[in-house]
Design a protein around this nucleic acid. Sequence first.
DNA 1: ATTCTTGCAAAAGATTTGCAAACAA
DNA 2: TTGTTTGCAAATCTTTTGCAAGAAT
Lengths: 144, 144
Amino acid sequence: MKRQRQAEQMTVLREMLDLRGAHFTRQRAAVFDYLNRVDHHPTAEEVFLAVKQGLPRISLATVYKNLEALVGCGAASKLTYGDGAARYDVRTDHHYHTRCLKCGRITDLEPEAGKQLLKLIKPPRGFKVEDYHLEVLGYCKSCS
Amino acid sequence: MKRQRQAEQMTVLREMLDLRGAHFTRQRAAVFDYLNRVDHHPTAEEVFLAVKQGLPRISLATVYKNLEALVGCGAASKLTYGDGAARYDVRTDHHYHTRCLKCGRITDLEPEAGKQLLKLIKPPRGFKVEDYHLEVLGYCKSCS
DNA sequence: ATTCTTGCAAAAGATTTGCAAACAA
DNA sequence: TTGTTTGCAAATCTTTTGCAAGAAT
């Protein structure tokens, strides 16, 4: 059933890419697959090192291009913090997470609060809301 | 009264720096003063170009060092997004803002919602909350 | 006097780009 | 076939660092 799920995800990915006129490639699939497997939000470098196991000739530039392509077609999202490198995630619908100030690990928060949160937000007149992002900073269990 | 306010701010800055064993310098004061004047959240480059008007010999590295010093003593805060460069702000108590996806301009949101927001946040067990950050993404009046 | 800061140039880290060959549609 | 992607190297952009001279405490 794990395999079937993966196959479904790849079909969905194919469609999402197709809508943007982008091709489905082994490298792209590998990057997407890795993002689906990990439980945290890796940097491009991390993705590169992991995907290289299966595709030894892949380059870091290709990983960057593919992460960009995945974000572009909506299959992944980019999370940027002050720690140098950007992080990537397959989920585009999670806007709530915690980030450890020591180890940098990111974990998702319950999305329940989101609905209520939206009611509280009062953007300035004329501002067209497209998305929102809530980040809770602190120290995780193993770092505190 | 504008001048007096500036003088007060500088006195406060002196104290904040002193607590960390940091010196008060013309360059540092100029960077801090600029952050106090602007209505948006500039990048280090922007600060550099602006401060250079009054201190033509200042270097970009000095601006970076001073922004870091200001953040270190609590006189400023650093805001990091996916658009390449970090942005800085004198206020350290504003965690709610909007960011335009087109021009990158950042404006503050009413902090009222913060109190209620905190009640909604349920971090994982063992996570020690230090800070939080809410960002609303979209298009500002002039860009939409 | 001692310690910190400046300015410069060089270095480092992350990400992007140009291009010819390879691949997907 | 046509347009996109790959891999490589070089380039770019942001930020940091080493160091001697200068400024603040």
